[in-house]
Nucleic acid binder design. Sequence first.
RNA 1: CGGAGAGUAGCUCAGCCUGGUAGAGCGCUGCGUUUGGGACGCAGAGGUCGCAGGUUCGAAUCCUGUCUCUCCGACCA
Length: 518
Amino acid sequence: MAKKPQTKDSGLPTRAEDYSAWYQEVVRVAELAEHSAVRGCMVIKPYGYALWENIKANLDARFKATDPPHQNAYFPLFIPKSFLQKEMEHAEGFALECAVVTHHRLTTDDDGKLIPDPESKLSEELIVRPTSETIIGESFSKWVNSYRDLPLLINQWANVVRWEMRTRLFLRTAEFLWQEGHTVHADAEDAERESLQMLEIYRSFAEDTMAMPVIVGRKTESEKFAGADHTYCIEAMMQDRKALQAGTSHNLGQNFARAFDITYLSKEQKQELAWTTSWGVSTRLIGGLIMTHGDDAGLVLPPALAPVHVAIIPIRCKKDEDRAAAERFLAPLLEALRSKAFHGRALSVEVDYGKDRPGAKHFAWEKKGVPLRVEVGPRDIEQGQVVYVKRTHGGKQTLSREAFAERILDLLGEIQGELYERARSFRDEHTVCLDDRAAFDAFFTPRNPDAPEIHGGFVRGGWCGDASCEAEVKDALRVTIRCIPIEGELAEPFSGACVACGRPALAGQPRVIWAKAY
RNA sequence: CGGAGAGUAGCUCAGCCUGGUAGAGCGCUGCGUUUGGGACGCAGAGGUCGCAGGUUCGAAUCCUGUCUCUCCGACCA
């Protein structure tokens, strides 16, 4: 393992020193996940999984709250190879990273070692799902008969496997957890409406719940999902100024309906080919959360998703009578706090009666990103007050016990807002409009190529629309077009030149977002 | 999958060059003293040195193979 530089404050490498080491240490010290014995796969630990459960609960409610609502279902982990064969463009997109099941039984060889039983070779190999369009398409072709069956709006929460060569906890693992929505529509307009509706849910979840600002856009041909007509996405900027695709929504057109014969009888008594969409977000969002809000002291969590909202650290609680006094003082406070809810979730409050000294407890909860830490000592009990520290600022404040209980939702709301604002100004500070290739190259080139410092960001620049131009930039600088913005000022048409080649930018298209990406 | 680095206690690492049978700090357990931002004393537990072969009287150390992780590329949510 590479040597990890340490700072004496937090024991963590700093982001500026070594961003990658910082990320990995935050995942470790916050007890989110660890590497498993299986190559490329992670163990998600209870605190990390609690975060995922909160993400899941929030999104699940949003999916079910649409009109008409989406419903959850579950489809098999294994996909017959022939299903992938039916939509080759899609299959080719995943071919390089598929796990293939070839046998269904083990036996022992002459040395007593376990081997796949040659007698048990499958007549048709099974692919561990890298995504489920094909197997769900097969079901949908049976479920959809009439225009009355449409729209069909299904989501599944599942694990998927993509045999990645290079993995990083949460950001890219061979197996990951996600949700994948799959829908069927009577016409192109309704499918388009659906893919945009789900994109908007992702945007508001990212911004309102994760406090992570995103750019809403469309992928270029070369970046879109294989098999889709077009792909929408939300793109966020991490603190190393690289882009993270945080969610995607695909309008699949009639590609999968054609491959899997998803047809319906219309009102006009005609057999019609349906239109489908798919959309998903994954445990990668947790990586995004870490890299959007984390600081050199560790994880920082938005209150809307934090597994623990408030950590209470009693001072002097080892002796029975001291602990009893603390418990008596805290009982009404805990009751008041736990009866409240933030972003639809009851407040989670932990009292740390552990053996460590108070300072050690502060550091531990700070590393875990808990939004508010509260300190209650004998002096506070005497005066009926609590001392609290916001994770976003660190200064100690004092409030009466009752006032704190009354203010709690405001405090959490302030933290939620501060995190969003901080992330948005960071992104805006590192987003530039450029029209000149030399400036573009300089922007994306580190001063020290041997140990690249954090550099670059988002460039808003013109694009001629030519894929070979994209390829040339990617080859030269590892910079790609993250998206073509479709919302707000960013989506205003641009009539200048392509920042890469100087030819006129595509008419009616806005400046596109160029960046290095995860 | 290419290039580079690294696998020794839960974590961070020393020991390897020059072979002689396992170390430190932190963490963990017990007892005591402590407790308002990483406490201290005493006593303990914990490692077939990534794995498999080989050389040797003897391997953490030398050789071969293999697996895994990290970083940089290619590919990708």
